[in-house]
């Protein structure tokens, strides 16, 4: 086992465990800490996969921005910061479905043919590909982001009608 594979196994296991912890944690703040670890672990895997740009993007966007954003959302919903996930009894079906899904996917992974690693790419190649060949997708992403921005602002603003409704509700 070479060092890269070893690192991958360690980081991958950590990533998986932190994801599992994030989903099962009782306190939502803990969840956010675990999910931050999960994002950072994935970023490391991206570096190992010779995608440094993606790794940095993952660190900046997910481990940084998204985690902080989640934290802020929890802080805004102040009274719920220590809200515990209601411990509902897990029925058999969801567990079974998720387990089966995981098994199917792992089985699919085992069937994957042995491809050879391609040549490594620099960020310049990536950016050329992104802006020229796949420019349409990038443009589409921009449009989606723009509409999401306006939609998000619309949803999150404190409307007069909603505050009135809250007052009348008591």
């Amino acid at each position: 086992m070479n060092p890269e594979t070893f690192a991958f196994v360690v980081v991958g296991a950590g990533t998986f465990v932190s994801a599992a912890l994030a989903i099962t944690a009782q306190e939502i703040v803990h969840t956010i800490i675990y999910i931050g670890a999960f994002f950072a672990g994935l970023a490391t895997i991206y570096f190992l996969l010779q995608a440094p740009f993606l790794g940095l993007l993952q660190l900046a966007v997910y481990a940084g921005a998204v985690t902080i954003l989640l934290m802020f959302a929890v802080m805004v919903l102040r009274k719920r910061i220590f809200a515990r996930e209601a411990r509902t009894a897990l029925s058999a079906l969801p567990v079974l479905v998720a387990l089966l899904l995981g098994l199917v996917l792992v089985d699919l992974a085992l069937r994957a043919p042995a491809y050879l690693p391609g040549p490594a790419y620099g960020v310049d190649t990536l950016s050329q590909n992104l802006f020229l060949v796949n420019g349409g997708w990038l443009l589409l992403l921009g449009l989606v982001m723009l509409s999401a921005l306006s939609g998000g602002v619309y949803l999150a603003r404190e409307t007069r009608s909603s505050s009135v409704a809250r007052e009348t509700r008591g």
């Binding site: 991958f8 998986f16 996969l49 199917v104 996917l105």
Partner: peptide, 17 residues
């Protein structure tokens, strides 16, 4: 380096999770 199977397995496991 990292085998493809491991990568896909991790990806599938995370997906199921």
């Amino acid at each position: 380096s990292i085998p493809l199977v491991d990568l896909l397995g991790l990806s599938g496991g995370l997906f199921a999770l």
